[in-house]
Design a protein around this nucleic acid. Structure first.
Lengths: 152, 152
DNA sequence: CCGTATCCTCCACGATACTG
DNA sequence: CAGTATCGTGGAGGATACGG
């Protein structure tokens, strides 16, 4: 993102976007979370130019989402494995999948859940793992509160 | 996105990204879902140039995420309200908030849930609203399956 | 006051050639 | 096979002036 000042925005969404906002980042993350590790695995699965793949992988490493790990000495070979921050990105991917599936999927009228559940259309929700209560973006007051550290 | 062929990718994530992949789109959506409706409301809350705001709002309308609704005749005034597809985007926003909060927030060590729940750190998960079971991106096989319509 | 039109900059992305 | 180097382009994003 060129508007670097957004990285200093108080909103966690804006801050997070700073690291995954580029087009390919999320798709690479998707593949990494799907078990892909190596350069050519990514490239086989994505219509991306090799230099772009290099750049995005480096950026994701710098952002702390992927770890570059040497798996062979001679010749030097690396694999890219999700860090904790990368793994934590899974719920975002899952939510995006569900949303994209419903509204822009090959068959927009049916969601993936149809095949896995009751046959009724289902809405994904994000729930708090502690309270087990559903939370919504609106609950956050995320775009309103200037101080994200204030305790209610 | 310039790589228009990605809009024809089978993966719902890639397809969805086509509509919200631009930097400002998600932040505008965030504000819209937070109750903002009007041009100047958005602009007051975001460090965005007015022409960009116009462009992104139009794009979101074209993508079917926002509806442009006239609320005044003379002079002509419009407001932008989330469609169903826009509202359905909330889980993505929520997941992004949680993720950004944990890893890139002003206080990266604590998540918002801390303040709302037990005091323990919590991980958000996406659950299927029908089965009430947690789902993960890996469950989808999303990056692997060429045919998203196949029924198991 | 609520936007739109114009013009410019810069970088994400693409194509291709090359190297150990 | 696993990348890097070089060059080019379109469009996202920015600054600012204008219009209803």
């Amino acid at each position: 993102m060129q508007h670097k000042s957004l990285g200093e925005e108080p909103c966690p969404i804006a801050r997070g976007l700073e690291h995954v906002g580029e087009w390919w980042s999320i798709l690479i993350l998707r593949d990494a979370l799907d078990g892909r590790r190596r350069f050519d695995e990514f490239q086989r699965n994505l219509p991306i130019a090799p230099n772009m793949l290099t750049r995005r992988l480096s950026a994701l490493v710098d952002a702390g989402l992927l770890e570059r790990r040497r798996y062979n000495e001679h010749p030097a070979r690396y694999e890219y494995v999700p860090t904790e921050a990368g793994i934590d990105f899974q719920p975002v991917i899952a939510a995006m999948f569900s949303w994209g599936r419903k509204h822009y999927g090959p068959n927009p009228l049916r969601s993936l859940f149809v095949y896995r559940a009751t046959g009724a259309e289902a809405e994904p929700v994000v729930i708090d793992a502690v309270t087990r209560l559903p939370i919504t973006a609106l609950d956050f007051g995320f775009a309103r509160n200037p101080d994200w550290d204030e305790v209610g």
